[in-house]
Design a protein around this nucleic acid. Structure first.
Lengths: 329, 329
DNA sequence: CTCCCCTTCCAAAACGTTTCGGATTTCGTC
DNA sequence: GACGAAATCCGAAACGTTTTGGAAGGGGAG
């Protein structure tokens, strides 16, 4: 087109205040200009990690000219309905999923429909799917090694529900490091990853005859609850019991003591997820996007050397939780 | 239409897997089927309260058949551009705003364009606009009276930036209650409402020759920081210094000590905001939606009677912060 | 049996873009 | 000055709904 005409049109457009109608251009071009996400919970029970991710992803999508359509639904039928609503109604061009599960029906569905999607976290499937994850196993290896280095010999785990892939990876890091070091596997309990369960499960671990001197928590939220439980028992986290979390939520700097944890570089991950998703929407092959990032441990004050007069070197019975562990391992 | 035909069509539609194209129906009906929100911050600096609100609102909009388009932009030019993008591109049928400011250009703009919108929080304008707010003044009256009842006579305030309407209301509740009780106005400092500033400002209050025995914090995030500052000073919140927050974030139950705070009934507020917004989109008059809800104080353990051997009854100089106070009052 | 009214159904227009093909203009060359 | 090719422009079709007006069909009353 001639530059002169282009300018002439642009000027006139601006004069009469013309703004293209997004809906019409979407109809014609066949693109909805939006990306969907289904929050896997009913309203009220929201997860700060998930939300933080959304808060990072949303604006970045905006810059790429894509909206973010948010729905919610409890895992299961409700959740799948939401996805069907989004993709079969052509409401979205791509989908973002997080908190992946070992067997994830969302991945199966999206793969089958051929919808571009990107997962934060991994899942078990033979087919290629775009994903980005922090290496949870390496992370909890790091954490376990650190605790062993502090002299801990009885290291427990507060894990998330075993259906979550992240719970499995993190538990594996803990378990394998103990095995390879020849240390007995400490006690392990699991539950939905929130503060309440963190407190509850820590309470149960502390009630044991020979409680662990250190405990890994699958998420910072659980660690926050665990700190509360330790305080309620009249002890002090970091001094009497070592605690390490995972996520590095903003709150982790403000617990008492500040929480040693695994950093999730939310901003960088969100940026990369958006990059992947836009590429997929433009037709890229999902198989080329499979990233597992190396973890970084943020040392604060919730862990440290075994307390003097502690259980170091003393014999003790290992408390197992085989019913849960079986499903995880 | 004949029932028989209706069924026949429905059956065939289902057989061939027909799903209406949302975009086409939007073009024809002239409605975008979405509501917009602009997060007033760059990515990375997100506010758990704002996000919690979004998490509650999003799914509820979904149930009303409306999507939620999220953008971001720092308050000022960037933010206004985002709003213009949303409304002038017909991307949204309504807008949600939160964290209202005393003079709020968003309200002015939306009012002028005649876009349906609902505000969480109030602002200063002559024109009617739909809003829903918790009564921050009443809330901090409640909190201040409670502290006075505990015997505190020197009550400080850690406030948010005075441009925020909520900061103004909360400060007014504190100030007026003290005035009406005949107590001197305690020290006050203000900053962006996050943990970091809570800690910083509390540190400054504690460094005073005669520090306050109780401090109101404009938000729970600030209170979390304040608790940390108190602990860092070798004292204990609830025993040596009383602290009260505002928001009742999930974390408030898990601080040490658990935080006494003002509850924001997020779920109920979100539900009502969505009701209002859908009504406005259907043509309702904004003037009829002006709600200020009565606050509820949640008593936990971060406040209590003045410590024995404390400052009760002793004379002291009042530490003012007139440069900030002036702008708030 | 015919006429009329009411129900039911169908076809066409419209929403505001993008895309595509043909028409027109421009320019260079002979 | 005329021709051809290329550049530029313009008009029409299409995206998949909703809406609307009129056609077709059915039933009741005269």
């Amino acid at each position: 087109m001639a530059e002169r005409t282009r300018v002439r049109v642009a000027v006139e457009a601006r004069r009469i205040g013309y703004v293209p109608n997004e809906t019409a251009r979407r109809l014609r071009s066949g693109r909805s200009g939006a990306v969907g996400v289904v929050v896997p919970a009913e309203p009220g029970r929201f997860d700060p990690f998930f939300l933080g991710m959304l808060a990072e992803v949303g604006p970045r999508l905006g810059k790429a000219g894509l909206g973010l359509v948010m729905m919610s639904g409890r895992p299961g039928r409700e959740e799948m309905q939401a996805y069907r609503h989004l993709v079969e109604g052509h409401r979205v061009e791509g989908v973002l999923i997080a908190r992946t599960r070992v067997i994830d029906p969302r991945v199966a569905y999206l793969l089958e429909r051929g919808v571009p999607f990107v997962a934060h976290g991994r899942t078990e499937t033979r087919r290629a799917y775009a994903h980005l994850d922090l290496d949870g196993e390496a992370a909890f290896r790091l954490a376990t090694e650190r605790l062993i280095g502090f002299g801990h010999r009885r290291i427990g785990l507060i894990s998330a529900a075993p259906g979550y892939m992240f719970a499995r990876h993190r538990a594996a890091g803990w378990r394998r490091t103990l095995e390879e070091t020849g240390l007995p596997r400490g006690p392990m309990l699991a539950g939905e990853p929130d503060e309440e369960n963190g407190e509850l499960l820590m309470r149960r671990l502390l009630a044991d005859k020979a409680p662990p001197t250190a405990v890994l928590c699958a998420t910072d939220r659980m660690a926050v609850g665990a700190i509360t439980a330790v305080a309620a028992a009249g002890r002090k986290a970091g001094r009497d019991v070592s605690l390490i979390g995972y996520d590095n939520l903003p709150i982790a700097s403000y617990t008492d003591p500040p929480l040693t944890t695994i950093d999730q570089p939310l901003a960088a991950m969100a940026a990369r997820l958006v990059e992947m998703l836009t590429a997929l929407i433009s037709g890229a092959n999902p198989a080329q996007f499979a990233e597992v990032w190396a973890p970084r441990l943020v040392a604060r004050a919730s862990d440290g050397p075994v307390a003097a007069g502690g259980v170091r070197g003393q014999g003790f019975a290992v408390r197992e939780a085989p019913e849960t562990l079986g499903r995880i391992a």
